[in-house]
Structure formats: C-alpha cells, structure tokens
Amino acid sequence: MIAPLDTLARRIQEAVPGARVEVVPNDSPAAQPSLLVDSAHALAIARFLRDEPSLRFDYASNVAGVDWLDSVTKTKTKVKKIVDGVEKEVEETVETKRPGYLEVVYHLYSMNLKHGPLIIRQRTGNRAELNRVASLISVWRGCEFQEREVYDLYGVVFDGHPDLRRILMWEGFKDHPMRKDYVQPDDFEYEPTPHDEVLGRAKEHYPK
C-alpha cells in the first residue's frame, strides 16, 4: 500500500529539494486524490517515484490530457453586517475567477510491489503560450506515444520529448480537437436526424 498522499508529498519534497507538490482532493464518487507536481521538478520527482525502493512505480499505465477553461465559481457565504443599526445575517456571493490551464495526468503503478495507482498531474501556465510541461519519457518509456497524443489533441508541449509530432491528425493540421473550445469544420449540410448543437449548425444550411 502507498502511504497517504500528504505523507508521500512530504517525502517527495524531502527527496527533491525545491519541489512543489500539492495534494489535489477529488470530491467525485471516485474519491481518488492525486498529486500536483511542478513541471520544473517533474522529472526529478518521477525518477524518485520510480527508483525509491519503497515506492518503485515502474509502470505508467496511462497519460491523459485535461482542458480546463477559464471558470468563475460563485460561493455564498453568510456574513454578519450591521444594517440600520441592527446586526443581521446577510448572504454574500463571492466570485472566484480561475484562469484556464491544460493538465496532463499520469497514472502510475508498481508491478514489483503490486500497488497503485498513484496519480500525478502537471499543469501548464495557461491555455495559450505557456503550454509547456516536462516530458517523462526518460523515466517511463511507454509515455512516448501518449504524450504525442496529448500534444496532438490538446496542444501541450512536452519539454524533452525526443519526437514530438502529431500522431492522430496529419502534419499541418492547426487545431487541437479535444480542447473544449474546438470548433469543428462546417460539414453539417446534411443531417437527417439533427438535435442539440448539431441542429443549430445544420439550420445554418437550411434554405431560407
């Protein structure tokens, strides 16, 4: 069994000086928390996770990309205020803006010690020009194609990847189709059973 993630985060910080490691809780039914690591030290952290005898995460089963758009979350808090000389409880909505970013998620297992998964994440600075994270190929060779796929479909650039080319779409393709703001080319001229978003786009082709 792996130690609780906050213990593991502390051990990583001891082993890799200067590393920023943060436990990301998961409120969904899966309740599977993960470790957010900073890209500058990601390679050293990965090496530690693989080589440390009590951890030995020798197998990265899965690399996934996630696109987080800019979001605004509203939280309501009750605040005591003095209104007309009388103290009252008033509900206040606080808006927290979170700029968007891209995320790369690695699922790690240990074949030797038969434990896992440990989920580590890397985040990019934003969704545009700060789109670089560290490639972990030198630690887990199997990440090569999957990092290429994340590069292809999300536009995350992996520093240190030996062969970062598109893998599913063709060379010269400009978009990143799995991004949430990707707009498909307009080939909706014939939709026999349109609905939802497709209906809207098909309607643009209907004769006026």
């Binding site: 063709w170 060379e171 010269g172 393709f173 400009k174 978009d175 080319p185 080939d187 001229e189 014939y190 082709h205």
Partner: peptide, 17 residues
Amino acid sequence: FGEHDLVPSKNPEVWQP
C-alpha cells in the same frame, strides 16, 4: 490535408446534400 479539414471538404460534382 488542410489546416482545419480536408480540402475540399466534398466534391460537389459527385455529392450534393
């Protein structure tokens, strides 16, 4: 292979919606 789609996206002499 175009930048966003195949060019042309259909052959109008063969196919019309």
